[in-house]
Amino acid sequence: MSLVQMTATAEPATADKKQRKSGLGRYTRPALGLLLPLALAAGWEAVVHFHLASGRLVPPPSVIYATFAELAATGELQRNALATLARVAAGFGLGVVAGTFLGALTGYSGFMFRLLDPTLQALRAIPSIAWIPLFILWLGIFETSKVVLIAVGVFFPVYLGVTGAVASVDRKIVEVGRLFRLSGVGMVRRILLPAVLPSYVIALRSGLGLGWMFVVAAEFMGASEGLGFLLVDGQQLGKPAQIVAAIVAFAVIGKLTDWLIVLITAPFLRWEDRVRTDTVED
């Protein structure tokens, strides 16, 4: 038996992925997604510019941009965005820690699952906004109640993702760990964590999305600063451009933070066997 014979077995195809990334496609494909919003914006701008509509309630892009620039110049935008970001960060952190811990616990132990999961699922069925009056009574109208509300919103998708992922780790892979006599810690670190990471990232991203949703609800219930405050303020003072500017800020920061999660975790997920390689950086 020679090695030459051994190496003669089939080589799988890996070249096509590289090919798809090269050339013009790399720049034109992302640009394609910009076509529709840009066309709509330019169209509305033209409509207002030629006085076909007043644009008072639906401000054209130029007015929104001017408002945005003005808010940024006075430092209003940064101050409010930072306040919102801080709330989301605190709530997200709390929600992720709690969701990960309880999710791992119920995913790993069937007993804990039967003990805790029904209660948690029942709590999940409550629309989280319904907690607001209670949280205000319990925790006051300031930061604590807002952060807790966001944490509640983040908790459930993270919990669901983690418990499902841990419970469905492939028994066959776990057996490999057992054969190599991994300790409990070793099993978690070398088998369970890497195995659940792809679903964990998805859980974190959906948790963060809900975090951004709940921060608006939290800021609606009374805040003196924050992007949500800009929304309420814009409504009460009849400044639609400020509302849209705040919405745009939400979109940008939300997208950036989501992208940050993807960026940070991407190096750990390079091994994934994806159907579409182009969804990684969306």
Binding site: I173, E175, L179, R181, I191, P194, W271, D273
Partner: peptide
Amino acid sequence: TQPHEKIGMIFQEPRLLPWL
């Protein structure tokens, strides 16, 4: 009584860890 260092095993599937 449990996996032993002197005993190795190969399964029907390779069971390689996909993240390594």
